[in-house]
């Protein structure tokens, strides 16, 4: 069926199969490959994007379910002039990433977290990121990044 989705401010109208997942739609049909896939059980959060301003796992949403919504992916976070989003900047300054594969999902989850809780404690951040797995950083610097972004 045909769907219209606004992704990073641009409206896209496209034909999708019922079974097409939002993450496949964004990656394969729109060619925005910044959103990664890390599992098949909605466990890892690598595919997190914002749907109408809130972090969701784009591997667990059908593209047809996203019809008419506004999606923000990692490609939509930095400014048009290339200025990093404060969360991206905080991840860079605090070495909150290594291989970078979980990073887009982490950044999307973390910005959503701060929107709901602008002044989190370390425990709030750790619990708030319970749905995102990282194999490189041991999370220490990710947590520091989010706390730094909250203060920025």
């Amino acid at each position: 069926m045909e769907i219209s989705v606004t992704v990073n401010g641009v409206k896209h109208t496209a034909e999708v199969e019922g079974r097409t997942l939002l993450v496949h739609f964004v990656r394969e049909q729109l060619g925005m490959t910044g959103t990664n896939i890390g599992c098949d059980t909605s466990s890892c959060g690598a595919c997190s994007v914002h749907l109408d301003g809130e972090a969701v796992k784009s591997c667990t949403i059908l593209a047809v379910q996203a019809d008419g919504t506004e999606i923000t992916t990692i490609e939509g976070m930095a400014g048009a002039d290339g200025t990093l989003h404060p969360m991206q900047q905080a991840f860079m300054e605090n070495h909150g990433l290594q291989c970078g594969y979980c990073t887009p999902g982490m950044v999307m989850a973390a910005t959503s977290l701060l929107k709901e809780n602008p002044n989190p404690t370390e425990e709030d951040v750790r619990l708030g990121l319970e749905g995102n797995l990282c194999r490189c950083t041991g999370y220490h610097n990710i947590v520091q990044s989010v706390l730094a972004a909250a203060k920025a």
Partner: peptide, 12 residues
């Protein structure tokens, strides 16, 4: 700071 990071942080 790492020079690898901007590309990884932006989905590039």
């Amino acid at each position: 700071l790492r020079k690898e990071d901007p590309a990884l942080l932006t989905g590039e």
